[in-house]
Write a protein that binds this DNA or RNA. Structure first.
Lengths: 188, 188
DNA sequence: ATCATTTTGTACCGATCGGTACAAAATGAT
DNA sequence: ATCATTTTGTACCGATCGGTACAAAATGAT
């Protein structure tokens, strides 16, 4: 037994960056060996399923990260009253003001959508559910809370796209600010 | 002289669908010859620059379509008072309730972003400018109009992502409805 | 020190990639 | 009918793709 945990985690985070930057098709094994310093032997030993398994592992890692740092705080009771602002801050930091793309978002409009459909749907639906819960506790009527949660998450996704399209990180910041205002309107 | 105009237009619309479905990397020349029925000889005669020129031509075609069907009506004066609803209808139809992706949006979060940066930025900035003009004429204060225009377009992009991620066309419809309400709030 | 097990680097596989060359075919003006 | 020009289909190019095989090296228990 060696210490694969840290190695694996480190490798996964490198893989995540590569997949984000080059997409699934654009990420070649050559690129991966170069970025990780691991030969194909090591990679296929670690991920026998090849590239598809690497992506799956990355998606699981991302899901876990969001579960811990984003969803869980939203579900906690009693609800901290800065739960929403702190979610928006964490998201802004994670996506580097929209200059780092959301791998789940990218995949959902790619031809790999069906292959990873479960992971993608899981990620977004859990996020929506957790945020819905929070919004209800901030005195948004239940019927509106879910709609507002959906709107919040698509707003974030859209902000990434538009700010990248226009090379304008400030646009991302602006749109997150507006989101902040919108979400806190009825909780005061 | 033959009749390349219709052939070229037809080819471009097939190319657009392929690029939308498979992305830039995922679209192989084999796929293109199969879908268009054109051999490589014909394709490289039509697009000497190869795949990159095909994508550029598609983006130009898309830009022209939006210019004609979306931006121009927004800029026309006097402003029809259903300008915004009719834009949202046109968009909903064009994106088939979010089940058809926005090629410009996809590219802007892909590794081809820089290669096609001009076309992408042009598309979104023209849209924002035209919509800003319309919103101002619907009694939104100028300072707010541009922010609201940005928000509208990122909202549409986000709706495509989220509705595809969740395989839920109804989510797209819902979010467009909300957009409709939001935009008409101050114009009544 | 031995030795079974795990891990790794490298050579190699067939398939496919985007692109080129070019002869054959179609076209259209005369 | 001739013939220059345009258009097309196909064979072929080197490069690279994802993946496999497997011997060599590293590891760790004894």
């Amino acid at each position: 037994m060696s210490r694969p945990p840290t190695d694996r985690t480190k490798t996964l985070s490198i893989l995540a960056e590569i997949f984000r930057e080059y997409g699934y098709d654009g990420t070649s094994l050559g690129l991966i060996t170069q970025a990780t310093g691991l030969g194909k032997g090591s990679l296929y030993h670690m991920f026998p399923g090849g590239k598809a398994e690497m992506m799956s592992a990355v998606l699981t890692e991302i899901d876990t990260w969001f579960e811990t740092h984003i969803y869980a705080p939203l579900r906690s009771t009693p609800q901290r009253n800065d739960a929403i602002p702190s979610m928006l801050d964490a998201v802004t930091q994670y996506f580097v003001s929209g200059q780092r793309v959301c791998l789940m978002g990218v995949l959902s409009v790619s031809n790999q959508r069906d292959q990873f459909a479960d992971a993608i749907a899981h990620y977004f639906s859990r996020w929506i559910e957790a945020l819905t819960l929070t919004l209800q506790q901030h005195s948004h009527p239940p019927s509106q809370a879910r709609l507002l949660a959906e709107e919040t998450i698509l707003h974030i996704q859209g902000a990434i796209i538009l700010s990248r399209a226009l090379h304008d990180p400030a646009l991302f910041q602006r749109s997150i600010s507006r989101l902040h205002d919108k979400l806190s309107l009825r909780s005061r």
